[in-house]
Write a protein that binds this DNA or RNA. Structure first.
Lengths: 249, 249
DNA sequence: CGTTGACCTTGACGTTACGTCAACTTCTAC
DNA sequence: GTAGAAGTTGACGTAACGTCAAGGTCAACG
């Protein structure tokens, strides 16, 4: 089963523009892109979109959402459980808001003095951003951290050095004016892929999304562009080509 | 009792910048401005801010919120009741969302096929804008009703007669096959507008909404269609054209 | 009395998450 | 085969603030 971009937009109560936007950010990659460029989405995409919209409603920014749905939680089921938790919390918050308004209503009717804090109980919903990133951040961080700390100092240094070497190689390719689909660039991308594959092996969509993140997240672009401005963009393009040639979804 | 801008920001879980922004838009004027330019807010301001934040959470744009809190609902208590209703609705929507996610969770765990519509049940929260403006229209009608009952019998009779004259004129135009944007029809609409303006002068949106009410409310359609079937529809269309040409929002 | 630090002001420009054309291609259906 | 709905990629616009910059105000403490 497969849906067109308009189908999905209507189903989710959003617009096709929004879906394309999410595509650009590597948030929601179509499961299939036709030879004509048309985007098609499958069931997994729908579940992913459900998660995205949930997180958005909880007030998270799109980059934060990207980190959550791309990186951390490979386990969809666990992620959905967390979402349920947050939704319950949200419902409870609405409940507190209702009580607030009821109080305001009653006291206004009776001309009674009302207390400032109770007027706004349940109104601050900026808490979620923290809560969510904390929850997922902790999890992702712990996984990464455990792995990282399991390395010896020499291994750590080697890992860092490999990233620097690869970044330099990309920067050199950029300087030489090589296109993303050049064989030599793709060879570097293979090294890059291997380097990333030390952690659980990524699918095609995953790899492409990772590429998009490079140009979106300043932390990553810095790591690459310090070796030459524009390197990060080349890396992303090269990753896209690499994914199409070598990975299956 | 009086609060500084920072006090209010902290109480409401927002920022001072936001409060200043609302001030610029005429959404929330400080109850007092010191000789030094400092803004101070009293209890009424807090209640007003509560309403603003509520409407914002329901997805309304700031101009729409301005219309609601400035224009129509002078009666704070009635407004708060409406808000309570909307909040209950919102809570119910969250409930539907929770069910959606639960379904997704269960079916994902069991590897079952999931249905597209149920994945996104409760996700579209664009409905509120409509709902709120609709209610605002109803409320405006009720205000009109109170005004009506305050008139003497003679005044009521005169008012009715004018309506009948206008309705007959519209019916005649309909019989002659004139379109809504015909000058003669628009002249009648001007009379109609003047007739309505006896009650507080309407904005463009208000006038158009009133037109829509004519075809929705049987009490009104009767009053016009008795002079010829289809008159109410013509009236609505003519009002729309008139509003576009002569009224500003 | 001076100064330190928290708080206030008014601009003015930056940012996020899309909305909204524009210009063009592609599928669907009579 | 032609209309019309739906798709594409840019590119620019916008709403609701965030974020400086440059400066005035106020309580308090030494």
């Amino acid at each position: 089963m497969e849906w067109s971009i308009q189908d999905v937009a209507r189903l989710a109560g959003t617009t096709s523009r929004t879906l394309r936007h999410y595509g650009e950010l590597g948030l929601l990659t179509p499961s299939r892109v036709g030879g004509n460029g048309y985007r098609y989405f499958d069931q997994d995409c729908l579940v992913r979109l459900q998660r995205i919209l949930l997180l958005r409603e909880l007030g998270l920014g799109l980059p934060a959402i990207a980190e959550v749905v791309n990186g951390a939680q490979r386990d969809t089921v666990a992620a959905l459980r967390t979402h349920l938790d947050l939704l319950e919390q949200e419902r409870e918050r609405i409940g507190r808001q209702i009580e607030s308004v009821k109080t305001t209503l009653r006291k206004t009717e009776e001309g009674e003095q009302l207390m400032a804090e109770e007027v706004f109980d349940g109104f601050d919903h900026t808490q979620y951003e923290q809560e969510v990133t904390e929850r997922w951040g902790r999890e992702a961080y712990q996984r990464g951290d455990r792995w990282w700390r399991s390395l010896s100092d020499a291994e750590k240094a080697a890992f860092k050095q490999r990233q620097v070497d690869i970044a330099k190689a990309f920067a050199g390719a950029l300087l030489a004016g090589l296109p993303a689909d050049d064989d030599r660039v793709q060879a570097i991308t293979q090294r890059h892929f291997d380097w990333l594959s030390i952690s659980p092996s990524p699918t095609r969509g995953h790899f492409v999304a990772l590429g998009e993140m490079y140009v979106a997240d300043p932390r990553f672009t810095d790591a690459y562009d310090r070796h030459g401005t524009g390197t990060a963009v080349l890396v992303r393009d090269a990753m896209k080509v690499f994914a199409e040639r070598n990975l299956n979804d």
